[in-house]
């Protein structure tokens, strides 16, 4: 927790990919874990019988409303992620604690998104009955896979400079589409309700 994970990649020139040896594992392990997480979530959602229902939180009219607000919270923190990442990389002027902001907004966004995903997979499963639902299911599984890869990649210094921004950008893009196809759709159809 003492070192800023993103700044480290800046201070070294990107090294050419190592020809062989343990370095390959740096990329292979995150990629395999990402694939396993995404496929695993999708397979669980497809195979198990959707329960159609799950517990609700007090104070909300429906689980869909709870999920929409949680998802919107996650999306809000994801926007903070983009801004704070630009600060860390020096593309935007930012305070000294922008790296800390990036880390913690990311953690919160992730932890807020997890219950939503659990409910989706438990109650509805992986569905493809129209294109909105299909993209939501697909990218919903994808986003947690890529996020896992990002977390595992962060453990290493001296990655190619473009790698973390690209992977982080994928996470953000996927999350945005997942949000557009669910929470925004819910608010448009059912009103901005609790």
């Amino acid at each position: 927790m003492t070192v800023d994970p993103n700044a480290a990649t800046q201070s070294f020139p990107p090294r050419p990919p190592a020809p062989s040896g343990p370095n390959a594992a740096r990329y292979l392990v995150p990629a395999l874990v990402a694939a396993a997480v995404a496929v695993g979530l999708g397979a669980y959602g497809k195979v198990h019988d959707p329960e159609g229902t799950a517990f609700n939180l007090a104070g909300f009219s429906s689980t869909s409303a709870v999920k929409s607000w949680l998802a919107t919270t996650a999306f809000g923190f994801a926007l903070v992620q983009v801004v704070s990442a630009l600060m860390v990389y020096g593309k935007l002027p930012g305070p000294g604690w922008s790296a800390k902001l990036h880390r913690w907004s990311g953690r919160i966004a992730f932890l807020v998104a997890v219950p939503v995903a659990v409910h989706c997979l438990y109650a509805f499963g992986y569905q493809t009955y129209d294109s909105r639902v299909m993209w939501h299911s697909l990218l919903g599984c994808f986003v947690f896979g890529v996020f896992s890869a990002k977390m595992l990649l962060l453990r290493w210094d001296r990655l190619p400079g473009w790698l973390l921004p690209v992977v982080g950008g994928l996470v953000f893009t996927a999350l945005t589409i997942v949000w557009l196809t669910s929470a925004l759709w819910f608010f448009r159809n059912f009103g901005v309700t609790t």
């Binding site: 990311g106 997890v114 977390m151 595992l152 453990r155």
Partner: peptide
């Protein structure tokens, strides 16, 4: 190797199992 990101993933996993 940093352990912070691993804890993040672990926390998410535990939360998911709890839910």
């Amino acid at each position: 190797k940093r352990t912070g990101p691993l804890f993040t993933l672990l926390a998410g996993l535990l939360l998911a199992l709890f839910m």
